[in-house]
Design a protein around this nucleic acid. Structure first.
Lengths: 149, 149
DNA sequence: ATTTTTGTAACTAGACTTGTTACAGTTATG
DNA sequence: CATAACTGTAACAAGTCTAGTTACAAAAAT
């Protein structure tokens, strides 16, 4: 399956951001994301390790953000959940008795790092607040449509 | 396994670029990449579809570039072999009766496209010739070392 | 005719992702 | 204190993807 953890993480964080004053339960998040609550809790675990959320166990437990939505950028979210690079290197080490094989790995490693950085840089230009603003902007015409009918 | 087709493709293309005047055989490329010849031929198939190489079957068959190494940029190589986006969207459609769930997919789709573009843009600043120049620059001190010993 | 090579299909093994069940530990409530 | 409602986490299944491998038809030079 294609890795969708970033998409789910942004979704979940946006929901937490929309209810900053209360603790949100994993079951409630799971309903909106349309998945199992354990999938959400695993995700929240990564977000907790990145110090983007705090959770509480027990009766009135749940999760909330550690910062204002405007102070969380999407590259932080990406870093929190992404385990792989944009592209992988050779599965087996290239033969060093070949002119290209001898030097290609160094070149690819630097290229890999630069490409990873460009992704972070691109995502870093948006905050969680920007996401919410956009979602609200998209929802607006839908609500107006409902009023008309 | 992490997808390493881009790395192998750059490696293979660099070898073709280093021998522009002859047809290179998949077995020879496979040795340097340290993999099976069929893996290389599958890769060359994608590169052929992207019109970066031409191959010939039969006795003195093999593959060569369709263009000068300076006229092939790495974003073309990436497009030729990459099948997936930088990040995936939700495996199941989010619930539209939730304020966030209703609009999040549109936002993520645009973000996905923008992130993909930033990768292409970053890779597009390098040509195959740049890769070869860098490989040669890395190999040079190694060769000098050999002369000393 | 023979040899060499590409193109391609079929299969295997391993890794990763999501979804699911199960359960220990934690916390508020009555 | 007993109960109910959570989180955190382990364990497993099903599906997908990747690389590697064998096998063979088709093509092309000798």
């Amino acid at each position: 399956m294609a890795n969708s953890q970033f998409a789910m993480a942004v979704h979940v964080l946006a929901m937490l951001a929309n209810n900053c004053d209360e603790r949100i339960k994993s079951g409630y998040l799971a309903e909106s994301v349309n998945t199992n609550a354990v999938v959400i809790r695993r995700l929240l675990c990564d977000l907790h390790d990145a110090e983007l959320v705090v959770s509480r166990t027990g009766y009135s437990g749940g999760t909330c953000l550690t910062r204002q939505p405007s102070a969380i950028t999407l590259d932080e979210v990406f870093d929190a959940v992404s385990k792989a690079d944009v592209f992988g290197l050779h599965p087996n080490q290239p033969k060093s008795d070949c002119e290209i094989g001898a030097g290609i790995t160094s070149v690819l490693e630097r290229l890999q790092e630069e490409t990873n950085l460009s992704v972070r840089n691109s995502l870093g230009s948006y905050s969680l607040q920007d996401v919410i603003d956009e979602v609200v902007r998209i929802d607006l015409p839908k609500k107006q449509e409902e009023l008309v009918t």
